[in-house]
């Protein structure tokens, strides 16, 4: 089962669309509610990251009987220091983004907390790819 979603950078009104769709499907698969919650929280954080920082992005979701793999691929400024970005509270979000209630610097840390495997690859000036795996 494969799904694909597009994300538009800077457009917050659609942030959360992919996570809601994925959530609906996980419920149809009968996945444990707590597990769904983690996946959805991580995916939503990923969506908001693309909207807040990048120019455009795609989400690829693959569901298998015992795991879900989510890849969030964006074209954007990239992350110069991934380790630093992973720290709670560290944020490069603009003032405008923060005023909308986002950009508290919890995004990547929250994603890590809610996934079983998280890999981030990034090239400054080109973009970032986040891969998350959750096992049911």
């Amino acid at each position: 089962m494969k799904l694909e979603f597009n994300i538009e950078g800077g457009n917050f009104s659609w942030a959360g669309h992919a996570s809601s769709e994925v959530k609906k499907m996980l419920k149809q698969l009968g996945i444990d509610a707590r597990c769904i919650k983690s996946i959805v929280i991580a995916l939503y954080e990923g969506e908001v990251n693309v909207v807040a920082h990048a120019y455009e992005g795609r989400i690829l979701v693959q569901m298998e009987p015992h795991k879900i793999t989510t890849e969030i691929i964006d074209k954007g400024p990239g992350i110069p220091d991934i380790e630093l970005a992973m720290q709670e509270g560290y944020s490069t979000a603009s003032k405008e983004v923060r005023e909308m209630g986002f950009g508290a610097g919890m995004g990547l840390a929250n994603m890590k907390k809610n996934t079983d495997e998280l890999t981030i690859e990034s090239t400054v000036g080109q973009g970032t790819t986040v891969k998350m795996v959750n096992y049911f």
Binding site: M1, K27, Q28, L29, G30, M63, E64, P65, H66
Partner: peptide, 10 residues
């Protein structure tokens, strides 16, 4: 839920 068995649900 589409099916109690996850593989069949998928």
């Amino acid at each position: 839920c589409l099916d109690p068995d996850r593989e069949r649900a998928l």
